[in-house]
């Protein structure tokens, strides 16, 4: 399959089309909404489905040195990328140190939904991947938050009397990390035999529910567009497109060094290139409440996510196929 076929196939897939529908509905000011409780339920379902799939794959393949190395590489990448993102933002934009650090944290962490769509892209291309990439995703959620806190720790001393331990507890045990890691462990313990009876819910329905979730993401991103003009300056918008490409360029040789399969390399690159909009925004409201949520949420969901969905994912797959080929 050529890169153009991949890109077209991706753009015309129901998942991306439902995202576009949500985007259109929000921009056209339709009254279409997905209730908050439903959206949260869908997010939990998706993370359970991804976690289980990864755990079952590891149960099939067993623990290997490559698994440990890949998880370690993911953690280092998640911790290091915010420093680079922060330096770029401070150079090209007028964002304050706190806002730049909060944005940077999003670009070190990962997006579970981009990962889910990446898995869907691999499914369409009939490419398998190493299941432990799900564990890598879970590990990559939090180091970026710690990196952002480190970046601003000198310039902004905490005044609310909260200890670092309390803050770490709130960040490390946030719901998305718990459900992703927990489902991964459940899948690992249960294995393929244990997964079989629950596969109708977590495997067969996965693509359909992903469409429903992407419709909601489109609605939320579309509403973000309305305020993007106010919240985001052109250099910041450009950052939202350039940073995934920079992260992908850093992650691609690491994936090759780790010897990942084309599918695994694609997901590793996707993890590095995606930006969080579930775990990190909530963590930033706790850790850096002075940072403007309109900037990092609009940038992550309104710029980087649609870019990755439409252009990034087929590009990362093409890069991964060339690397492994």
């Amino acid at each position: 399959m050529s890169a153009i076929d991949l890109a077209l196939g991706n753009l015309l897939s129901p998942v991306v089309l439902f995202f576009a529908l949500g985007l259109f509905a929000a921009i056209a000011r339709s009254d279409l909404t997905i209730p908050e409780a439903v959206a949260k339920g869908l997010a939990i379902y998706l993370m359970m489905a991804i976690g289980l799939k990864g755990g079952v794959e590891v149960a099939k393949q067993g623990l290997t040195a490559k698994l440990v190395l890949t998880i370690g590489a993911g953690a280092v990448l998640s911790f290091a990328l915010p420093f680079l993102a922060y330096a770029i933002l401070r150079t090209v934009s007028r964002l304050s140190p706190v806002n730049a650090a909060a944005v940077a944290a999003h670009y070190g962490s990962i997006s579970a939904v981009t990962l889910a769509v990446g898995i869907e892209v691999l499914g369409r291309a009939n490419l398998p991947f190493e299941g432990y990439l799900i564990a890598v995703a879970a590990v990559m959620e939090t180091p970026a938050i710690l990196a952002a806190l480190l970046i601003v720790s000198r310039s902004t001393p905490r005044e609310d009397g909260l200890s670092g331990k309390e803050l770490f507890h709130e960040i490390a045990l946030n719901g998305s990390v718990v459900v992703l890691v927990g489902s991964f462990i459940v899948g690992w313990i249960a294995g393929p035999a244990g997964m079989k009876p629950i596969a109708p819910l977590f495997t067969d329905l996965f693509r359909g529910i992903l469409c429903l979730f992407l419709l909601d993401m489109g609605l939320v991103a579309g509403r973000g567009f309305a305020r993007a003009r106010k919240a985001l300056s052109p250099p910041v918008i450009l950052f939202g497109i350039a940073m995934p490409l920079i992260s992908a360029a850093i992650a691609a040789p690491i994936a090759a060094l780790l010897g990942l399969s084309p599918g695994g390399a694609m997901l590793f690159i996707t993890l590095a290139a995606s930006s969080s909009y579930i775990a990190v925004p909530a963590a930033m409201r706790l850790a850096l409440p002075e940072a403007d949520a309109a900037i990092y949420l609009t940038l992550s969901l309104g710029v980087t996510f649609p870019f990755n969905l439409a252009i990034g994912l087929p590009l990362y797959l093409t890069i991964a196929q060339h690397l492994a080929g």
Partner: peptide, 16 residues
């Protein structure tokens, strides 16, 4: 001060 917000469709608690 930060503009309008709505809980509709929010996955994260950040904007609730």
């Amino acid at each position: 001060r930060g503009g309008p917000w709505s809980e509709a469709g929010q996955v994260s608690d950040a904007e609730r």
